[in-house]
Protein backbone atom coordinates (compact mmCIF):
# COMPACT_ATOMS: atom_id res chain seq x y z
CA UNK A 1 0.00 0.00 0.00
CA UNK A 2 1.20 3.45 -0.86
CA UNK A 3 1.76 6.17 1.71
CA UNK A 4 -1.30 8.09 2.60
CA UNK A 5 0.26 11.41 1.67
CA UNK A 6 1.34 10.09 -1.66
CA UNK A 7 -2.17 8.82 -2.31
CA UNK A 8 -3.59 12.23 -1.41
CA UNK A 9 -1.11 14.05 -3.63
CA UNK A 10 -1.63 11.74 -6.58
CA UNK A 11 -5.41 11.61 -6.51
CA UNK A 12 -6.03 14.72 -8.54
CA UNK A 13 -3.47 14.00 -11.31
CA UNK A 14 -4.72 10.43 -11.59
CA UNK A 15 -8.36 11.49 -11.89
CA UNK A 16 -7.53 14.16 -14.43
CA UNK A 17 -5.39 11.80 -16.44
CA UNK A 18 -8.05 9.08 -16.51
CA UNK A 19 -10.73 11.54 -17.53
CA UNK A 20 -8.51 13.01 -20.24
CA UNK A 21 -9.05 9.70 -22.05
CA UNK A 22 -12.81 9.89 -21.86
CA UNK A 23 -15.79 10.17 -19.52
CA UNK A 24 -16.11 7.90 -16.54
CA UNK A 25 -17.92 7.48 -13.23
CA UNK A 26 -16.66 7.11 -9.69
CA UNK A 27 -16.66 3.37 -9.30
CA UNK A 28 -15.05 2.96 -12.68
CA UNK A 29 -12.30 5.39 -11.76
CA UNK A 30 -11.56 3.43 -8.60
CA UNK A 31 -11.37 0.17 -10.53
CA UNK A 32 -9.11 1.72 -13.18
CA UNK A 33 -6.71 3.08 -10.60
CA UNK A 34 -6.62 -0.29 -8.90
CA UNK A 35 -5.84 -2.07 -12.15
CA UNK A 36 -3.22 0.47 -13.23
CA UNK A 37 -1.35 0.12 -9.95
CA UNK A 38 -1.70 -3.64 -9.59
CA UNK A 39 -3.87 -3.13 -6.57
CA UNK A 40 -1.22 -0.96 -4.98
CA UNK A 41 -3.48 2.11 -4.98
CA UNK A 42 -6.78 1.13 -3.48
CA UNK A 43 -9.00 4.18 -3.16
CA UNK A 44 -11.94 4.21 -0.90
CA UNK A 45 -15.27 5.56 -2.05
CA UNK A 46 -15.33 7.84 0.94
CA UNK A 47 -12.21 9.51 -0.36
CA UNK A 48 -12.96 9.70 -4.03
CA UNK A 49 -16.45 11.15 -4.16
CA UNK A 50 -15.74 14.21 -2.02
CA UNK A 51 -12.64 14.89 -4.15
CA UNK A 52 -14.70 14.61 -7.32
CA UNK A 53 -17.18 17.11 -5.92
CA UNK A 54 -14.45 19.47 -4.96
CA UNK A 55 -12.85 19.22 -8.39
CA UNK A 56 -16.19 19.83 -10.01
CA UNK A 57 -16.80 22.92 -7.97
CA UNK A 58 -13.28 24.07 -8.84
CA UNK A 59 -14.24 23.74 -12.50
CA UNK A 60 -11.70 21.07 -13.37
CA UNK A 61 -14.29 18.49 -14.29
CA UNK A 62 -18.02 18.49 -14.94
CA UNK A 63 -20.66 15.87 -14.34
CA UNK A 64 -23.96 14.64 -15.73
CA UNK A 65 -26.46 12.04 -14.64
CA UNK A 66 -26.99 9.37 -17.23
CA UNK A 67 -29.83 6.89 -17.10
CA UNK A 68 -28.73 3.37 -17.93
CA UNK A 69 -30.66 0.87 -19.95
CA UNK A 70 -31.61 -0.94 -16.77
CA UNK A 71 -33.14 2.26 -15.46
CA UNK A 72 -30.36 3.02 -12.98
CA UNK A 73 -28.67 6.39 -12.83
CA UNK A 74 -24.96 7.02 -12.92
CA UNK A 75 -23.07 10.23 -12.61
CA UNK A 76 -20.48 10.56 -15.34
CA UNK A 77 -17.57 12.98 -15.13
CA UNK A 78 -15.75 14.60 -18.04
CA UNK A 79 -12.70 16.81 -17.97
CA UNK A 80 -13.02 20.51 -18.75
CA UNK A 81 -10.62 22.79 -20.58
CA UNK A 82 -9.41 24.08 -17.24
CA UNK A 83 -8.89 20.51 -16.13
CA UNK A 84 -6.73 19.80 -19.17
CA UNK A 85 -4.57 22.84 -18.36
CA UNK A 86 -4.27 21.64 -14.80
CA UNK A 87 -3.32 18.15 -15.98
CA UNK A 88 -0.50 19.63 -18.07
CA UNK A 89 0.91 21.54 -15.11
CA UNK A 90 0.74 18.59 -12.74
CA UNK A 91 2.12 16.29 -15.38
CA UNK A 92 5.24 18.51 -15.74
CA UNK A 93 5.65 18.56 -11.99
CA UNK A 94 5.38 14.81 -11.64
CA UNK A 95 7.78 14.33 -14.55
CA UNK A 96 10.33 16.55 -12.80
CA UNK A 97 10.05 14.56 -9.59
CA UNK A 98 10.19 11.32 -11.56
CA UNK A 99 13.31 12.40 -13.50
CA UNK A 100 15.10 13.46 -10.35
CA UNK A 101 14.34 10.18 -8.61
CA UNK A 102 15.40 8.17 -11.65
CA UNK A 103 18.75 9.98 -11.75
CA UNK A 104 19.27 9.39 -8.03
CA UNK A 105 18.50 5.75 -8.26
CA UNK A 106 20.75 5.38 -11.38
CA UNK A 107 24.39 4.17 -11.33
CA UNK A 108 26.28 7.41 -10.74
CA UNK A 109 24.23 10.43 -9.87
CA UNK A 110 26.08 13.78 -9.88
CA UNK A 111 25.99 14.88 -6.26
CA UNK A 112 27.86 17.34 -4.12
CA UNK A 113 28.18 15.81 -0.70
CA UNK A 114 30.13 16.21 2.49
Amino acid sequence: MAYKTLVAASTKPLILSILSHGKSYGYQIIKNVENLSDGELSWTDAMLYPVLHRMESDGLIKSEWVIQDNGRKRKYYTITEKGREERKVTRAQWMNVNAALNLLWGSSPQLELG
Binding site: T44, D45, A46, M47, Y49, P50, V51, H53, R54, S57
Partner: peptide, 18 residues
Protein backbone atom coordinates in the same frame (compact mmCIF):
# COMPACT_ATOMS: atom_id res chain seq x y z
CA UNK B 1 -18.25 -1.56 4.05
CA UNK B 2 -16.28 -0.47 1.06
CA UNK B 3 -18.48 2.46 0.20
CA UNK B 4 -18.98 3.89 3.65
CA UNK B 5 -17.07 3.17 6.86
CA UNK B 6 -19.51 5.31 8.89
CA UNK B 7 -21.79 8.09 7.69
CA UNK B 8 -19.92 10.53 9.84
CA UNK B 9 -16.50 9.68 8.30
CA UNK B 10 -18.06 10.12 4.90
CA UNK B 11 -19.41 13.52 5.87
CA UNK B 12 -15.99 14.39 7.25
CA UNK B 13 -14.38 13.63 3.90
CA UNK B 14 -16.87 15.80 2.04
CA UNK B 15 -16.30 18.56 4.54
CA UNK B 16 -12.53 18.21 4.27
CA UNK B 17 -12.62 18.30 0.50
CA UNK B 18 -14.87 21.36 0.56
Amino acid sequence: EKTMPTPECLADEYHKAR
